[in-house]
């Protein structure tokens, strides 16, 4: 196991010990941190490993939230709802991926962005099933008290994050990850050496959807109320990209750190500049791209030294 993988697991363990130190607020932040990391790491499979600029994260997040939300209303247990959300997202994304990932560059970006729009509109219009624009109420859980519930959802999200991390590590070290790296560098040459690029891209897209959808399911149960403009918010597609860019594309450790750092920034901005927080987010994005295009990874001491010498 590589050093950075060990570091990532250690980081996860540290996150898991959070309830020892904080109350309800810390748990809420911790849950969101896990959710963001799931999104960023999942995006990284298709965006970082395979190099396809996907904006579909919000589509799968919303899909998972609504799948779980509707099933919870039918009385199914939460774990089953989440599993169903994950598996259906995996299959749907794999099938869609076979078609959408034939597109490259901007065309793929737009198609994946449109996926969010299509799903949002479908949910908006399927009023009987989803409540449409009025949103969907999700029955409360056991009623075991606020803190216990916060703890429960924190660990639910944490376990999903752990699974995501294990998935990403498995992919990175496998034939699949090697193949995705080939596709990122030169897709034509990849198929020339016998790589079934369509299959690999489909699997990657499916995997990148699966855990995001599961996280959407847990989120729906956690917040008790979802509506289309909340869970299909295009920001859920863009934030993971910003996190991955912050941490450094492709490296799971970097991406996870990027997610946590991003949440920290978001929280600070949200608390201090509630009225202009999206504007400040935009500013962060612009500055990041201008001054730190390769992410925090490029700030390693060795690289810094090189930069200083360069100057």
């Amino acid at each position: 196991m590589t050093k950075s993988n060990i570091a990532l697991l250690v980081l996860l363990a540290v996150v898991a010990s959070l309830p020892l130190f904080g109350g309800a607020y810390a748990l809420r932040l911790g849950t969101i941190a896990c959710m963001y990391a799931i999104m960023a790491l999942s995006w990284n499979v298709v965006g970082g490993f395979a190099g396809y600029p996907s904006f579909a994260t919000a589509a799968f997040f919303g899909f998972g939230a609504y799948t779980a939300g509707v099933l919870l209303n039918k009385g199914l247990p939460l774990w089953l709802c989440v599993v169903i959300a994950a598996v259906t997202a995996l299959l749907i994304a794999a099938v869609l991926g076979a078609a959408l990932l034939r597109l490259r560059g901007h065309y793929f970006a737009i198609a994946s962005l449109s996926l969010v729009e299509v799903l949002r509109e479908l949910v908006n219009n399927a009023t009987d099933l989803t409540g449409g624009g009025m949103g969907l109420n999700i029955p409360l859980g056991s009623g075991s008290g606020v803190l216990a519930e916060a703890m429960f959802f924190f660990y639910a999200m944490w376990i999903l994050l752990l699974l995501t991390v294990l998935m990403v590590m498995a992919v990175a070290g496998s034939k699949l990850g090697f193949g995705l790296a080939c596709i990122r560098q030169n897709e034509t040459a990849s198929s020339m050496v016998g790589l079934n690029t369509t299959l690999y891209k489909s699997i990657a897209f499916g995997l990148s959807a699966c855990f995001v959808s599961a996280a959407g399911g847990v989120y729906a149960a956690w917040v008790h109320y979802i509506d289309p403009s909340d869970v299909f918010d295009i920001l859920y597609s863009v934030k993971p990209i910003v996190m991955a860019l912050m941490g450094g594309l492709g490296s799971p450790l970097g991406v996870a750190c990027g997610a946590f750092l991003y949440l920290g920034l978001e929280e600070v901005v949200w608390r201090n500049y509630i009225q202009i927080h999206t504007g400040v987010l935009g500013l962060i994005i612009v500055l990041l791209l201008l001054f730190l295009p390769h992410g925090l990874i490029s700030l390693r001491p060795a690289n810094l030294w090189r930069r200083v010498k360069h100057v």
Partner: peptide, 19 residues
């Protein structure tokens, strides 16, 4: 820069203007 960067850049600018 790659598609991802220019796209994210204009998204950031849009957030600023829209906000």
């Amino acid at each position: 820069a790659p598609v991802l960067v220019t796209l994210t850049m204009t998204f950031g600018l849009d957030l600023i203007l829209n906000n």
